[in-house]
């Protein structure tokens, strides 16, 4: 990633402190300085309690930082959010039971007031992309967990957002489904060239998917290293068997501070 690219997201001295039950300050995140380029695939990696989800939510304006600030495309996260330039894939597939898969994918477009025909065409396109074309008129409960998460991803891409936030989207899935979705995600990302921020606690997942890994350490949550992942793209699953992949995994593992990862 040596070539000059436009910087899209900047965080400066970002920190989040909240009060616990006994009114004591708990530092969830402190002093995060980060620059993310347009079209980059960034993994936020760390053990639980390191503030990676908090960092993601601050950038997506789902949470207010208590210190420092975030700039996205020269604006505040709130301004960017109100322009509907974000997509977010949550840990669980947040599909509405009373809507068919297709109608769920159309939801963001409905909120934006797109026309019926446009919504339908775009939803069909997204269903095709994630391989759920035959399930368009099924209800979420009729789908498996992996299929639900695919519908979730289709919905996030449907609005063609500039920035896509993904918060451990595959952590509840089995290994086979996960690998399939990894490949799908990389394919979709290449085709659409989004900026993706991907939270995970799985080192292999982070290395396989991302351009750079931001390693976060806990107590207090902080950015402890940024590791460049210089594996050539497009990547296939065989990459995981290469020596270089193993070396990168080791490098990431060794960059945790505080020895919290064995």
């Amino acid at each position: 990633m040596s070539k000059e690219r436009e910087i899209e997201i900047i965080t400066r001295n970002l920190g989040v402190t909240f009060k616990d039950d006994q009114d004591k300050d708990v530092v969830a995140l402190t002093n995060v300085n980060l620059e993310i380029c347009k079209g980059e695939f960034i993994a936020l990696l760390g053990p639980s309690g390191c503030g990676k989800t908090t960092l993601l939510r601050c950038m997506a304006d789902l949470q207010k930082p208590t210190e420092g600030d975030v700039h996205i495309q020269g604006m505040t996260p709130k301004e960017v959010r109100l322009q509907q330039k974000f997509g977010f894939v949550f840990q669980q597939p947040v599909l509405f039971d009373w809507r068919t898969v297709k109608k769920n994918i159309e939801l963001p477009m409905e909120i934006m007031g797109r026309s019926k025909g446009e919504r339908s065409d775009r939803a069909d396109e997204m269903l095709e992309m994630v391989g759920l074309k035959e399930f368009a008129n099924h209800y979420p409960k009729q789908l498996s967990g992996g299929m639900q998460q695919r519908a979730n991803i289709a919905r996030a891409f449907g609005l063609d957002p500039d920035i896509l936030f993904m918060d451990e989207p595959f952590s509840a899935l089995d290994e086979f489904t996960k690998e399939k979705l990894h490949e799908d995600l990389l394919r979709i990302w290449r085709a659409t060239n989004k900026t993706i921020l991907f939270v995970t606690h799985n080192i292999q997942e982070g290395v396989f998917l991302s351009d750079r890994i931001c390693v976060l350490s806990p107590h207090p949550g902080r950015l402890s290293a940024i590791v460049d992942i210089d594996i050539e793209r497009p990547r296939s699953l065989e990459v995981k068997d290469s020596v270089h992949f193993t070396e990168l995994v080791a490098k990431v593992r060794n960059s945790f501070e505080g020895g919290s990862i064995a």
Binding site: F88, F90, Q91, Q92, V94, I111, M112, L159
Partner: peptide, 11 residues
């Protein structure tokens, strides 16, 4: 869970 966040993301 997260349904309200979903609606917030799309403003």
């Amino acid at each position: 869970p997260f349904s309200e966040d979903l609606m917030a993301i799309y403003a």
